[in-house]
Design a protein around this nucleic acid. Structure first.
Lengths: 337, 337
DNA sequence: TTGTATGCGTTATCAA
DNA sequence: TTGATAACGCATACAA
């Protein structure tokens, strides 16, 4: 087969008209059993499957879910995208994953609209954006009936959307009470500024430390959130007069950078925490205490919203917060005298 | 705008027929400057961009490249996919990325044909498969004119395809000569069996050890290639009578598992090498000697094949081998007496 | 150079 | 119930 069979081929083989054959795949009950069997048989013999895109060109009825992953390289994002795909498939809803491409613009990161536009051209029934995008404007002027769910980030810019994400306050409360129990009173925070979730996480940290009566140092890393900037910020923080005994990091990557610096210094006395609980954090030599975002639940809640109209309508414009967990490891096990 | 403008809208606004407007976007020189300007102006005012899929439904001329990533979670794959996308975009060729979904079947991993079929339905001009798939059969019966390039894996099953991948022999030669220089004579290999690249890598290892007069132990991990299986195999290997002084691993993940085990044992005397040089290998606390696959060159060569017909024709059916590099780190720095 | 007609694979509308 | 026909958004052979 050098060419895919079309409904035309199936109809010809079954000896019916194209329209009759088409109806067999849309509403099977509307065609007589005898003909239905003939069509179905012809379809399997030819290996016919409907062309979803020609279909969606004509009508938006058999909609699919367009999944947009903000960043391929973030394992958290791909994990949720994968889980969502499976959950939707189990409901018979098919989805198509595309990655957003974020390019360097004159002032900061810019969202490349092209791949998103291409996905939109496919006429999805609903959209699932996984991860924070520099800009949600491509989704601002969508046809009314398209539902938008944003995971792991805020959907504040989009009044008609729903966001599913981790409860930052709960997360930082877990971290700080753990550190407090271990006797830490001087704690630092290292993380980026500017992005919404980042600000929120830092504010949540500050609130949590206050409720535990801790002394706080904040050190920003601009917008970067990788190891290099983590190490750099750690250098500044540990150089302070009364250095902190614990460093709370925006995410695991930043924490790895902090660990790198401490390792080079031969300093094993400072506690470090991460966020995301990537599998790297669990490696014996890293052993980083970290916040586990409940990806399974985030994916589940998102899929309910994506597939059920009434569920979506009930929570449009809100943020659904998911409870995180703290995974404690060697990086915070020592107790301060 | 609750609905995207079509070429029809543009034509109406510019006061020309639909076809004239269409020609402006396909071969602009075939239309008079005055009308062209009018059409272009109308298009920008309306925010019109052609619907790529309706276009590719009608004709395969303005083809795009379909990129299929075997596994989202492999950073090597996504890195190459991303690089390819950028390179192609620079040539004005647009690409669309989809992830293959690999599900558990009755006997082993099975490739879910659906997402691939969906991508194929979009009628790509050529296909870029990044990473090894359990099964290349969905690409066996493609229309003749579709070029297929496979990166990081063999395309042996597909006579009409080209494969671009790392020279395994060169890689293992680098590893073994490095270990030999450090005085190692007893070396073990830990890696999966069954998959083509895996077999090839192991065979390359055996050849390289022979040329350096080393004693070899091979320990397989079935088809798994993660930390858990690495640790397990390491347990068996190190329990041997004359345990090896160095362990060469199929990839970084397996090596991390080996490191985990050695760490738990408090054994810092055994050298370990990985493969892929993931960024984790560079973390101070891991510091794993590893093979760096030249992803940039792999992406470049692949894109040449994807976009240039004559280049592709010249090397169809062959494997293009890319030279790797060895990045040496603390895990192999010690010298054996 | 410009417009008309037709088809890509599918579904929706209408007669029969 | 079934089949002919138009349309989705676009490109192209052809005629004007």
């Amino acid at each position: 087969m050098t060419k895919r069979p079309t409904i035309h081929d199936v109809a010809a083989r079954a000896g019916v008209s194209k329209s009759t054959a088409a109806v067999v795949f849309s509403s099977p009950d509307d065609v007589s059993p005898a003909r239905r069997e003939r069509v179905l048989a012809a379809a399997t013999e030819l290996g016919y499957t409907p062309n979803a895109w020609a279909r969606s060109l004509r009508s938006a009825s058999r909609g699919f879910v367009g999944i947009i992953v903000a960043d391929f390289h973030n394992p958290l994002f791909t994990e949720i995208a994968d889980a969502a795909r499976q959950l939707l498939a189990a409901q018979g809803i098919f989805s198509f994953v595309a990655s957003a491409s974020i390019v360097d613009g004159p002032d900061g990161k810019i969202l490349d609209r092209e791949p998103i536009q291409h996905l939109l051209d496919l006429k999805p029934q609903s959209l699932f954006v996984v991860g924070g995008l520099p800009d949600l404007s491509p989704f601002a002027k969508l046809p009314e009936h398209i539902r938008v769910v944003v995971a792991l980030s805020s959907a504040h810019e989009l009044p008609g959307a729903v966001s599913v994400r981790t409860d930052e306050s709960a997360a930082m409360e877990l971290v700080c009470s753990h550190l407090s129990e271990r006797g830490h009173t001087q704690v630092a925070y290292i993380g980026p500024v500017g992005r919404r979730v980042a600000e929120e996480r830092r504010d949540a940290f500050v609130r949590a430390t206050h409720s535990h009566g801790m002394d706080v140092v904040i050190e920003s890393t601009d917008t970067a959130m990788d190891e290099a900037s983590g190490a750099e910020a750690a250098e500044r923080v540990t150089g302070l007069d009364r250095g902190p005994t614990a460093i709370v990091c925006y995410n695991d990557n930043v924490a790895f950078g902090v660990q790198n610096l401490l390792e080079r210094r031969g300093d094993r006395g400072v506690a470090v925490t991460g966020y995301d609980n990537t599998y790297i954090a669990g490696l014996e030599r890293i052993s980083l205490t970290s916040i586990e975002q409940n990806t399974v639940e985030i994916a589940q809640r998102s899929c309910e919203l994506l597939s059920d109209d009434s569920v979506f309508a009930a929570s449009v414009g809100t943020d659904i917060l998911i409870e995180p967990e703290l995974v404690t490891r060697a990086s915070t096990l020592a107790v301060i005298a």
